[in-house]
């Protein structure tokens, strides 16, 4: 699985339980337990960082459930990755080459 090591080290320092996932020949990063602000429901979700193009988006963040109580976002995708269902909202980052941390940080910031 080929993702930049230095970026993975940063991810690991923020989310110690992070795991690499290979699905369909492409790498993802699983954050098994991400805490959201108290106003969100649910407060803890799993996230899957998708650093490659999918569904017309250059990168995405998939969440285990749709989150309510946060900022309004356009949930527009239900999909199946790694034998599990995932939800995603519409967001295109302005940075054309975001790091793994950038992806997680910006998507989670847009959500809550």
């Amino acid at each position: 699985m080929s993702l930049p090591k230095d970026q993975l080290v940063i991810i690991k320092s923020v989310w110690p339980d992070a795991q690499l996932v290979e699905e369909g020949g492409k790498p993802f990063v699983l954050l098994a337990s991400v805490r959201l602000p108290d106003r969100c429901t649910p407060k803890i979700v799993a996230c899957l960082i998708c650093p490659h193009e999918r569904d017309g988006y250059p990168c995405r963040l998939f969440l285990s459930e749709r989150v309510t109580g946060g900022k309004p976002v356009n949930w527009n995708t239900s999909t199946a990755i790694a034998e599990r269902s995932w939800q995603a909202f519409s967001l295109k980052l302005s940075n054309p080459t975001p790091t793994l941390y950038d992806i997680a940080h910006h998507f989670l910031g847009a959500l809550a």
């Binding site: 699985m1 996932v21 290979e22 369909g24 020949g25 699983l30 790694a82």
Partner: peptide, 13 residues
């Protein structure tokens, strides 16, 4: 064929 089977999970580091 290398994509056969369950997704593979690998701890980082």
């Amino acid at each position: 064929s290398s994509e056969i089977g369950d997704a593979r999970f690998v701890p980082i580091g």
